[in-house]
Nucleic acid binder design. Structure first.
Length: 920
DNA sequence: GGTCTGCATGTGCAG
DNA sequence: TGCACATGCAGACCT
């Protein structure tokens, strides 16, 4: 047998081990499969190439059970030819269509293959290998034309191509290889006279036809595993499906060739064609050649490696990187179990064929050059196989990967080494900010593909990361983004990306950008219980009470009724508020406040009147105050630098908010609003040290009107210095008035408690214990006036768990209470009367000067605190929120002491009061 | 008790 | 409807 005499060299050119030295090891696998592994270098992709070498004479060649034609096995060509018979033996699949072609029967001449693959009319047909070279003409004219076209196309690179074809010929399976030498390769490469080459050429053409631009790419063809390791499962017929699968693998392999680094002009004809100019930068999924069967890789596994990344990963070496596939890590993959489930198609296409569940060790190099050995194996699963890589935990940990991240498998050519890259999938703005800027990370910004290597990714990676997240290039968000990019004039830079990011993020997470992320995340857990939810996203979505309040707007077309309380006008709406659009307030250095709104269409920022309440949607068209900027086509009023500064500080605020939010969450002794209310009353909301001095942005309180006494609005104006204790401005007066109200409540509760204790004491004296308890409890329930008179706080105070000193904010804190009743205060005051405390006396107390009251109640410390802590600078609304956040943080830790010092101040129900103010 | 291993099972998707 | 695959689970094995 000619091929037995052949000495082959390991395709790893750096290895060079040859069969003659015994360095090659092969396994004849089931029914035509063969796997080889170089003992020296571990390269394991040559199985299809040298299969005839490693097959025993008896098993290396099969004869068709029907026609007796000698069939090759386990090689690329035979993928299309071999049919495994249930009863044993093999059969060339062309037999039914080309019967009686026994010309090769018994012939041991290594013509390679029974290439009499008969296809449908649309398929190129090739003559059988029994034909002479002259007869081995391509009968499909179009195909021939295509081949000529290839040569013509490659004419300028003829030498290189021929060389490549030589290389391919070397790699090509079949008897040709086993029995021929390089001259024949040359001949073959020139004339495509060899069936194997015809087959390959066909594939090339097919690939080329579909990926024409790619066809101009580097055709440094190196047959990868994809070309030669179809798994022939026992008992499975090589039906059309298998063919297509094999074809898919083949075309994938061809595709891989086309994915080799190429001139920037070459762009895959993906749906991103519109972005062809950016294609070399954009992370575009490289689909398998389309139309080559139903079993091509699912798009989710298409590698999305930019050419630049390919060049990067290949580094200074001459190696080329052939992206094979990628996979988003599932929780299982990234878990401690250390098993990475491989997509079946990918495993069978790109990894060595394995016939035993034990599989074989696979050496995979990571992007840092470290080599890992994983066990590539499978489990039988529902008449199928489930391929896994075992022992990946160290590698996963080394790369610091987690569920949702992506691992990418590539092959380094010509070494043939498998390379495992990764790409982080973090989508948090904070995470991104925490990363070095060169490796912006995040779905909205960028990602660090092969982060160990691509530390100097171009700024474009911001978009590529985003695009990467958009699985499948045809998804609408991608198009939208593409449009956005184009609308941005193609000025793609990280800064731009950042701006986009800012804009989107500030727009409360642009849904269109969230959608693909969610879609992508479906890969890691389609089951609801498996969905991952980024904690910081959760944080983003978690609106605090006051944040939600910030977004509330008076209901449209509803006129408020004005209620005057203590010479202050309050708007009262019968309809519940609606959510409005977030805006940004800026305090100009020259003085004065500005409100800025972002157009929902073009994302440009427009200046709007300070007192304008933005509706839920707002566009430039609605900018009635500046006719020069009432269109999206109008330029930004802010210079890029101003905008950067403008948004940068807002981002800082958000970052601090996130940081602060956590400890505030952990300490529930004082809710944010509670703390804010107390802090506002004490006037220390705006600690200059904790707020942005000049630009403090947030939304404006919807009810913010002169005289509004809500928690937000009562805060002292900034930039005007501290208020004096004797200040009688509205703000100070409101603060004082509300504090008096607070004190009144405190007094009322004390009185009620005393009265209650006295009552119980009396009941104990004049009634049996049980009866007294029943009466007492029933009185609480049955006596509506008294029950109503008892505030919720009072009732809560009865509960041991709600002891004033340990009171935990009720569950309504942090939530919007749209149903609060403005007259509740009155009810509670009625209740005060019922407890025996004179309303007149309370009014007297209320009319006392605050300082007098405080002194009478031993709260002088609060006086000094209030005087010392008046926040003096203007609060732009973000500053308010920021102050709140900081106060949340500060009060979360110090809230207990503060509450303690304030006695029962914590019984002040800010939510109620807030709502009351709002409704007042 | 923890970890590993092999297999089973449920779910979503593609054909 | 079948397949792919994420994950559960039970038994074996290890510490």
């Amino acid at each position: 047998m000619a091929n037995n005499s052949m000495s082959n060299t390991c395709m790893n050119t750096l290895c060079g081990a040859s069969t003659s030295t015994g360095s090659m090891k092969g396994w004849a696998l089931r029914s035509g499969e063969v796997a080889t592994l170089c003992n020296k270098c571990g390269s394991a992709y040559e199985q299809s190439i040298f299969c005839d070498v490693y097959h025993a004479e008896d098993s290396g060649w099969r004869h068709c059970s029907s026609c007796g034609k000698r069939l090759h096995c386990g090689c690329i060509v035979s993928m299309f030819l071999l049919e495994l018979l249930d009863g044993g033996g093999v059969k060339c699949i062309s037999c039914p269509k080309v019967p009686g072609d026994n010309s090769d029967k018994g012939e041991e001449k290594s013509d390679g293959v029974g290439t009499s693959k008969v296809n449908n009319a649309n398929e190129p047909q090739f003559t059988t290998d029994s034909q002479s070279d002259g007869e081995r003409k391509i009968t499909n004219v179009a195909e021939a034309d295509g081949m000529r076209h290839i040569f013509q196309l490659r004419n300028g690179e003829a030498n290189g191509f021929v060389n490549q074809m030589k290389q391919e010929n070397i790699l090509l399976p079949g008897g040709d290889i086993g029995s021929t030498s390089s001259p024949k390769f040359d001949q073959a490469s020139n004339e495509f006279s060899q069936p194997a080459k015809s087959e390959t050429g066909k594939s090339i053409i097919a690939a080329k036809d579909l990926h024409d631009p790619l066809a101009q790419t580097n055709l440094s063809i190196t047959l990868g595993t994809s070309l030669g390791n179809p798994n022939f499962f026992p008992g499975t017929a090589m039906d059309e499906r298998m063919q297509s699968k094999a074809s898919s693998s083949l075309t994938q392999g061809l595709r891989s060739r086309h994915l080799l680094p190429k001139p920037p002009k070459s762009s895959p004809p993906t749906a991103l064609g519109a972005n062809a100019g950016m294609v070399s930068q954009i992370r575009v999924a490289r689909p398998p050649v389309e139309g080559r069967g139903r079993n091509q890789l699912l798009p989710r596994y298409w590698p999305r490696i930019t050419d630049q990344e390919l060049r990067q990963i290949s580094g200074d070496t001459n190696s080329t990187i052939v992206p094979l596939f990628e996979k988003v890590l599932s929780a299982s993959d990234a878990g401690r179990i250390g098993r990475l489930v491989l997509p079946k198609a990918c495993a069978e296409a790109y990894f060595p064929p394995i016939s035993q569940p034990e599989g074989l060790p696979l050496r995979i190099q990571d992007v840092k050059g470290k080599e890992w050995v994983f066990q590539f194996r499978f489990w039988p699963n529902n008449n199928s196989r489930m391929y896994v890589l075992e022992g990946v935990t160290p590698c996963i940990q080394s790369m610091q990967l987690q569920a949702g991240d992506t691992v990418t498998f590539s092959r380094m050519e010509p070494e043939g080494k498998l390379v495992m890259g990764f790409r982080k999938a973090s989508n948090s703005i904070t995470m991104q900010e925490s990363q070095p800027p060169a490796i912006p990370n995040g779905v909205y910004s960028s990602e660090s593909f092969f982060s160990g290597v691509f530390e100097n990714l171009p700024i474009m990676s911001g978009y590529t990361g985003l695009l990467q997240s958009l699985k499948g290039s045809t998804e609408t968000p991608l198009s939208a983004l593409s449009k956005h990019l184009h609308s941005a004039g193609g000025d793609i830079s990280w800064n731009k990306s950042e701006k986009l990011e800012d804009r989107t993020r500030e727009s409360l997470l642009l849904p269109s950008l969230l959608v693909p992320e969610r879609k992508r995340m479906r890969n890691i857990g389609s089951k609801s219980k498996r969905l991952l939810f980024d904690s910081l996203d959760a944080l983003e979505l978690k609106l605090t009470w006051e944040e939600a309040q910030d977004l509330l707007r008076p209901p449209p077309s509803v006129k408020p009724s004005i209620v005057t309380i203590e010479d202050h006008d309050f708007e009262e709406y019968e309809e519940p508020p609606v959510f409005g659009k977030r805006s940004v307030f800026v305090v100009r250095s020259i003085g004065g406040q500005e409100q800025w709104a972002q157009c929902d269409n073009c994302s440009k920022w427009r200046r709007v009147p300070v007192d304008f309440l933005l509706p839920s949607t707002w566009t430039c068209m609605d900018n009635a105050w500046d006719q020069s900027r009432c269109s999206c086509s109008s330029p930004d009023e802010l210079s890029p630098r101003e905008l950067e500064n403008f948004l940068g500080q807002y981002k800082d605020f958000k970052k601090r908010r996130i940081i602060c939010y956590r400890p505030a969450q952990e300490n529930e002794s004082s809710s944010g609003l509670d703390a804010l209310a107390n802090a506002a009353i004490l006037g220390d909301v705006n600690d200059p040290s904790t707020t942005a001095p000049e630009v403090a942005t947030t939304t404006k309180h919807p009810r913010h009107r002169p005289g509004c006494s809500c928690i937000v609005c009562i805060q002292p104006p900034s930039g005007k210095g501290k208020h004096k204790p004797t200040c009688t401005c509205n703000v100070c007066m409101t603060v004082k008035r509300r504090f008096k109200t607070l004190m009144m409540r405190k007094k009322k509760r004390q009185s009620e408690r005393e009265a209650e204790i006295a009552l119980q004491r009396n009941q104990h004296l004049f009634a049996p214990k049980d009866e007294a308890e029943v009466e007492s409890s029933s009185k609480l329930v049955l006596d509506p006036s008294e029950n109503e008179g008892r505030s919720a706080n009072d009732l809560e105070s009865k509960s041991p768990s709600n002891h004033p000193s340990t009171k935990i904010p009720d569950t309504n804190k942090g939530h919007i209470d749209l149903n609060c009743q403005p007259d509740r205060e009155e009810e509670s005051q009625v209740g005060i009367g019922s407890t025996g405390m004179s309303m007149m006396s309370l009014l007297q107390v209320a009319n006392l000067p605050l300082e007098t009251y405080l002194k009478q109640n031993g709260l002088t410390s609060l006086v000094s605190e209030q005087q010392a802590s008046s926040a003096s600078h203007v609060l732009a609304q973000t500053g308010e929120s920021e102050g709140r956040v900081h106060d949340d943080c500060q009060l979360a830790s110090g809230g207990a002491q503060e509450q303690e010092s304030r006695g029962e101040d914590d019984n002040f129900d800010p939510g109620h009061d807030q709502s009351q103010s709002d409704h007042a």
